[in-house]
Write a protein that binds this DNA or RNA. Sequence first.
RNA 1: GCGAGAGUGGCGAAAUUGGCAGACGCGCUGGACUUAGGAUCCAGUGCCUUAAUCGGCGUGGGGGUUCGACUCCCCCCUCUCGCACCA
Length: 949
Amino acid sequence: MPRYDAKRIEPKWQTFWDQHQTFKLGSIDPSKQKLYVLDMFPYPSGAGLHVGHPEGYTATDIVCRYSRMKGKQVLHPMGWDAFGLPAEEYAIRTGTHPAVTTAKNIETFKRQLKSLGFSYDWSREFATTDPDYYRWTQWIFLQLFDTWYDAEHTWTGPDGVTRTGKGRPIAELPIPADVASQGQEAVRRYQDKHRLAYQHEAPVNWCPALGTVLANEEVIDGKSERGGHPVERTPLRQWLLRITAYGDRLANELEDLHWPESIKLMQRNWIGRSEGAEVDFWIGGFGREPSSSTSSRSGGRESPGSAATAQLSADSRGESNQGAHAPRSEEFGEWKVARAKTGFPKEPSNDVLRIYTTRPDTLFGATYMVLSPEHPAVDRLTTPEQQAVVDAYRQQAAMKSDLDRTDLAKDKSGVFTGGYAINPINGEQVPVWIADYVLISYGTGAIMAVPAHDVRDCEFAEKYGIPIMWVVEPPQGYEYSKEELTFPLERKIDVLYPFTGEGKAIHSSIYNGLKTHVFKAKITNDLAENGLGRRAVNYRLRDWLFSRQRYWGEPFPIWHELDANGQPTGLMRVDDEASLPVRLPEMADFKPTGTPEPMLSKAPADWLCKTTVDGVRLKRETNTMPQWAGSCWYYLRFADPKNDQQFLDPAIEKACLPVDLYVGGAEHAVLHLLYSRFWHKVLFDRGLVSTCEPFQRLVNQGMILGEVDENGRAEKMSKSRGNVINPDTVVDEFGADSLRLYEMFMGPLEAVKPWSMKGVEGVSRFLARVWRMIADELHEEAVRLNPAVQDVPPSAEQLRVLHRTIKAVTNDIESLGFNTAISRMMEFVNEFLSSEVRPRAVMDPFVLLLSPFAPHLAEELWELLGHTTTLAYEPWPTWDEQHLIETEVEIPVQINGKLRGKVKVPVNADQPTLEAAAKSDPTVASQLEGKTIVKTVVIPGRMINFVVK
RNA sequence: GCGAGAGUGGCGAAAUUGGCAGACGCGCUGGACUUAGGAUCCAGUGCCUUAAUCGGCGUGGGGGUUCGACUCCCCCCUCUCGCACCA
C-alpha cells in the first residue's frame, strides 16, 4: 500500500469518472464561455494505439482539464475514422467482414484510450461507418450535388470581408436560352455539368490488384503505396468535387487562421494560384500547306545579345516566311480584324490554339508551341507525314502514369506534329509539337514555348534544335553563370541556359525597353482589346477525384437512369433525404472484380436496381466515397451526434463551433485539412454553418522517433526496425500518468523527439516523489497522509515557491509549453521534499496544478487530503504577485561584458548602492585594480556592467 | 533545384523586450543506508587548466552591430520536412 502504485490508483479513478460521467458535457449554456478542443480522430488499425497518438491526445487533455477548472464549457469528443482499405484488405485475405474487423479494432483502441485517462465525453462517440453517421455524409454529398458555384456573386461575410464567388442552389443556375429551348433533358444535363459534385471521364490511376483507382498521393513510383502493386492509367468515368472553384477562398482565407505558417504555406503551394494570360494562336483551317521543315528557319543557337538574335527580329522573321505561306498570312489578317470586333470568345474556337502563360511579356520569344499529347487539336494539326510518329508518341504517353511523366530523371521528349500556328502578336509562324511535359490537366493543355526564358522549354529546344530567341534583357550585373544550367537535377545543359527573372524587353517591337511587370500588364491589356487574349488565373489544385471502387466506404445516394436497352442515359436521380442512409449491401465475397468495375456491382439485384413509379429503370451508382469523406465533417457532428432530424442543429452549431484548438499530425496538411475546409465553405455558402472556417487554431504534434542508437541517431518507429513502443507495455510497467507526463516532458509538443525508456523512468520517479511528499510511505497497511503535511500557515518562502509555480505552470499551459510546466512542478517538489513541514494550504493547490498532467495520481492525493469530490471542476489556483516579491536579489557583475562576480543587494537598491556593492566584491575589485572605468551600465534589479580600459 | 524549419553538455532539452548560457530530466562519478539494489537519500557533473581557487574557452563555421549577442544583421556549412516539368 505505501508506495506509489499506479496499478491500484488508475483503474480506480477511471471507473469513478465513468460512473459519475464526470466529463459529459450536457447542453451548452450560451452565457458561459465554450471551448471546443479536438484531436484528429484515429483510424482504428489492427496494430492498436501507437505512442504517437497519446502525444497529441495528452496535450489536448491537459488543455481541456485546465479549461474546465477555469470554468469553461469544454467540448472534447472522440470517435473513429473507420472506413478504409486495410479492413477491406483483411476481409479479402481472411473472409472476415470489414464491419467485424472494424468493431474489434475500435474496441481495442477505446480500451487503450480509456487506460490513459483522457477526459473525453464518450457519450458523443461515433464511427464514420455507423449508418446513423454516414447517412449525413451522404446527405452532405447531396448538398454538394445540389450546389453550383456562382463565380460572379459578390457578398459580404460575417467577418465583414467582401468576397466574390459563392455556392448556390442548382435551381438558381441561370439556364441559357438555347439550352432551355432544347427541353427538360438538356436543362438537366446542363445543370449536371455545373454541380460541385459531377462526373467526368479522365485517365486515372487504376490498380488492378487492389481493385480500385487511387489518388495521386496514394501512388509512389508507379506502384500502389499499399502492397506495391503496379498502377495503370485508364480513362474512367469518375466522380469529382469541384474544389478548384474554391481555390481563391481556400488560399485567401488561410490568412487569419492561427495555424503553423508551414502548413498555411503548404496549402497555398498546393492550391498553386498563378496569374497570367490566355492567348489564342491562330491555326486557321490547318493541314493544307504543311511547312517544309524547321530547318528553313535560322535554326542556329543564339547566345544572349548576339547579332544572331537581332537578325531574327520580329519584322524580318515575318517577311522571311511571307512567300511560302502568303495565303495563310492573308487569312490571318482577316481573322485578326474579325477578332478585334467579336472580342475574345469564352471557349476557344476550332481555328485557334489557346495557351496559358504567366509570362505574356515573352510572347515575342515564342519559337514553338507544345500541346499535351491528349490535346483535342492534335488530330487536326498533324500532317500525314507526321501521323505515324504522333500516334506512336500519344500511345506511349497514354501508358505512362502521371508520376512517370513528371519524373525529372527522364529526358524531355516530344514529336513535331507537322503543323504550324501563328503568333497573334507578330504574325510569326511557329511549329507545333506535342510533348508529355505539357499536362492536359493544367491551364489549357497547350503552351507557347519560350526557350530563352523558360528552363523546360530551353532543354526541349536544345534537344530538338529549335531556335532560341532572347526577348528579356537581364538587369545590369547579371552573370550568365554556367552553374545555372543545371537542370534537371545533376544533368547539365552546357550550351545555353534560360534567363527566367525579370528584366527589360528586347526584340519585342513597340514594347522594347519596358520592364517585365509593366510589359506584362500592358500586353495583356492590348491583347484583350484586340480580342486575342485575356487575363487568366490558374491553379495547380485539381478537382478532387471522389470515387473509389471499394466496398468499405459510403455508397453514393445516386441512381442512373437506364434506357430501354438497359444502357445508362447519363441522367441521374438522387435518393431523397428520407430514404437515407443508403446502406452498404451485405456481401460475402470481397475479392476485387479484377476490372475497374466497382465491388458494389456484385451487390444483390434488389440493392442495385429499381423502377420508378413512372416506369423509369434505375441502376445504383456502385462507386463508394473515399475515406476522406467521413473525416471531412466529423467535427461538426460531435456537436450534435445523436440528432436524427438534421446533420447539425443550427443553434448548437452556433454555440459549439468553430473548433478552437485542433491537434494532429502534419501529414494531413494538404489532404484532410484542405478537404474539410472545402466542405465547410460549401456548407457555409448553403447557410448550414455560420463560420467560414472550421478550425481556428491548429497545432501539429511532432513525430516520436525510436530510441537514440549508439551512433547518436534516432529513426522513425517501424515494425521492420523493431523499435516500436507499445503504449500498453509502458502503462503496464509505469502507469498511464507516467506515460502522459513523459510524452509531455520529452520536449516541445511540435518538435520531433526520440523516445527514451530511461526518460519514462525519470518522470515515474518524479510521480513517486510527489506521492511521498503527500502520502505516508512508511505506514505499511493503509494510505495515510504524510505527517509532514500539516494544517499550519505556510512560510513566506513556501508561499513564494507555490505562487511562482502557479504562475509558471498556468502560463506554460496557456502557451502549450508542457515540458517546462512539468519542470517547474519538479522544482516545487524538490523544494518541499526537503521541507519538514508541508502546509496543507500549499499541497492542495499543487495537486490541482498537477491534475491536468497526472489526473489519476492527483485525484488520489486530492482524496487523501480530505476532499470528497472530484477535482475536475475545482477552481484553478491563482497566483498573487505580492508573494513573488523578494527582498534581496543576486545581481551579476560584469566587466567589459564578462561575468566577474555576483552581489546580493536589496531588491530596490539604487545605482550608487549597487555600484558600491559591486566594487566591494573581492574578485571584481581585483579585476578593476589599475584600470579606469569608462562607463557603467546598470539595469536596476538585473545586472551591472563596468566598461574599463 | 525551389520552399520552410532547425543546429546549445555524453543524451532529451531550458533561457521575458539583447542582460548570470545549460533550468528540469536522463546518464555518469563519489558517498550514505543495505544480505542485495534497476529502491531511496546526499554531494558533484559544459570543456581546458588546477590540489582547489584564480583563469581561459564555450550555443554549427566566419564576419558585423552593441557596454553586453543562443537572441539582431551579412556570408557559409550541415540536418530534417515539404514540393518537385503546373507553363
